[in-house]
Design a binder for these strands. Structure first.
Lengths: 226, 226, 226, 226
DNA sequence: CATGAATGAGCATTCATTCAT
DNA sequence: CATGAATGAATGCTCATTCAT
């Protein structure tokens, strides 16, 4: 009898383990998203420093305590926003590199589009990412998160550099090493975004990021090949 | 002792009668500088968010209350740091424009030096300025200060644009309008500074700002003229 | 599989029909022990104030909610630890009193051993019991638990007093009433334990409880009889 | 002129420094007392764990922030209560030792009075001191405070031991070393206080500490000399 | 002008407890 | 019975700002 009983128990347990774990994980990921989305909204509305955990909790229709079940602290919650955008950048660049519908030169030209898409993907968070990166907030992050950020960041740069290397084998002659080019392109991109952003904040006015970005990359591309 | 004391009184009275307004003003300006310098030091040491008004007061060897006699609030105190650097940038660019030892082409090349000097002048504050500009802190500033900032900022851009216009009359043919070029150059500069800064913070490592900046401006300059 | 499943159902039904109340009770008591043991371990490791219900649940390999099926609240859970030690003390003293291998004088001498055994039985919890007894925590306890504690406590004192009364009939002449002696002995015991404990915490050093306790009881015994 | 001026300045400054410093210190000490008294009252009323810093601030008719100008944190505030009582004990014992109106035997007998006075001085805080000493709270204290506590504590013990040593030279023959006697007396004292305290808390009833203490010390004294 | 003690609103974080599953 | 995710009140502590002296 005890054998049958324990078997029943086993079966139930197995059934539970099978289906439940993945549903749990999906549920958990959904909650994280829910919080992330709320955080982004609050942050856009009230600014980084003025947003409180309670604001975010209210926006997410959760209690403050719940936030801490999914994020270690406020800094990590904010950092996780940056993570998402870096992941997106990474994916876009990987796809670009892997794609076979473009020749090396075209791929290089397409980097600009990828970067602009990143901005489109989440303008506010992109801005905040610059905040984060140049700030003391980095010191409070847990190492796994910090490592993810640095790795994604350096990975994106590496892919860009590789695209330039491929371009060189495709016949282009660049004036500078691919690694340098990659990081300067990224700097140019962030610089323009920041400038247009602060400019719009100071003077109001309309969004002229796209044309400015086009001009900047146009000049840059022209100066790049010899 | 009482004799000395009464004499002191006389002297005070005389000083009052003389009533030199300008000395007052100069004195006042000296105090502001004293505070500004202290703020900069504290800020460099402890980071923007972690610095308190009391820290600054202690560094300035003043009391917290005194800070508020010279600055409306913490945000204005910090913003005033940015002001100084913008003033420096402005002066440097004005001098460059007014100088007659360089021809238009050389002047354009000298812009890079001017920008790098701005960074040298006060690296930490330059970083913080980017923070400030792209942030909610701008909303708390009093209009006079905000106007000063925007005016200095736009003025610097205008001078740079003018230098390019002069260069055009000096024979250079630019691919883009001088105003656009000016703002893209500024963006490139800030972007590179931010990148190198955050990179050093994340990965440690040595300061390679200068070579990166050289490379960036080199590429850019090459792409600029046709 | 469905066959097995339906059989499981049968078994469950049978179990219900058999409905052994006592097994339920024994099971319930086992769970309480499981929790109590876990609480003690956590408490010893992290200290009274720092231990959370979740810590205890994790240690007991149960969920936090389950703890509340067996204990009304955190205070009661902790109080139940004290209960166990008082029960032990009670049993030891009862046995001592009932035993017929010692004469009255020897029994009195054996009290010291009993008390020391209580300390050995669970040092940390004994300490915590003093905390509890002299504290506000008592106010939050439910009356049944509180009554158990006071009853066990007073019972132990009564047995000790009885031992002294027996000793008087055995020829010893005590300078003070047995009830007073009993409570002073208990006080001496707790005082020495607390002192050695705090001393070890403050100054580090090795455990010298036993010799101190011996000396204390030695002096006390000498002063007791006339 | 500048000499006279600077002299005037010096005189003013000296006058200020002279009178002000001591007044400041006295004022500061007064505030600490104010807070300490309030803390003691709140603590007596609501118990150690349930008292909040805000409660204490309200009782002291101050704001929460002010408390932190005088005490590093909650633990230190509470520890400072213990400090006062240890200081009192120390003074009482020093006076006892220094006094020349009692012979060595009488001094030893007077220890009991001193200890009882300590209890009278501040019963609640004495209790809390036992809490503190046997608890994890010790770990959070700053070293100066911790050192003061341990030093005062050990000092008191040393004085008591010395009194017994003096008694030995006065002709008394003790069964145990003076150091051991001192610590056992202290243990006996604290044990009795705790017992009576918890007993009154559990059973209500009137204060019978004095007679119990008398009895305890009576027995102990009798056992002490040979 | 300068002071610096006092303020008190504000916030991140914790954790005992509950309840739908 | 058991679970454990969610709760949300509670709290220690901070710090920009004020104001009586």
């Amino acid at each position: 009898m005890s054998i049958i009983y324990s078997r029943c128990y086993e079966i139930n347990r197995l059934q539970k383990i099978m289906g439940i774990q993945e549903r749990k994980n999906r549920e958990r990921e959904r909650r994280r998203q829910q919080i992330t989305v709320a955080a982004k909204r609050v942050f856009s509305r009230k600014g980084f420093a003025k947003s409180t955990m309670e604001d975010i909790a209210r926006e997410a229709e959760l209690s403050p305590g719940t936030l801490y079940l999914y994020f270690k602290n406020k800094d990590e919650l904010y950092a996780s926003l940056s993570l998402r955008i870096l992941q997106y950048l990474n994916i876009r660049l990987k796809d670009l590199k892997a794609g076979d519908d473009l020749d090396p030169r075209q791929k290089i030209a397409a980097i600009k589009e990828a970067l602009y898409d990143v901005y489109q993907f989440d303008p506010m968070v992109l801005i905040s990412m610059f905040h984060l990166q140049s700030s003391e907030a980095l010191k409070n992050l847990s190492s796994p998160l910090l490592e993810s950020i640095t790795e994604l960041s350096s990975n994106s740069l590496k892919i860009m550099a590789q695209l330039f290397r491929d371009g060189r084998q495709g016949g282009s002659i660049f004036t500078h090493p691919p690694d340098d080019i990659a990081k300067i392109i990224w700097s140019l991109f962030t610089g323009v975004v920041l400038w247009e952003e602060s400019n719009r904040m100071l003077n109001g006015g309309k969004d002229v990021l796209k044309p400015t970005l086009d001009a900047a990359f146009d000049i840059f591309a022209r100066g790049l090949t010899r």
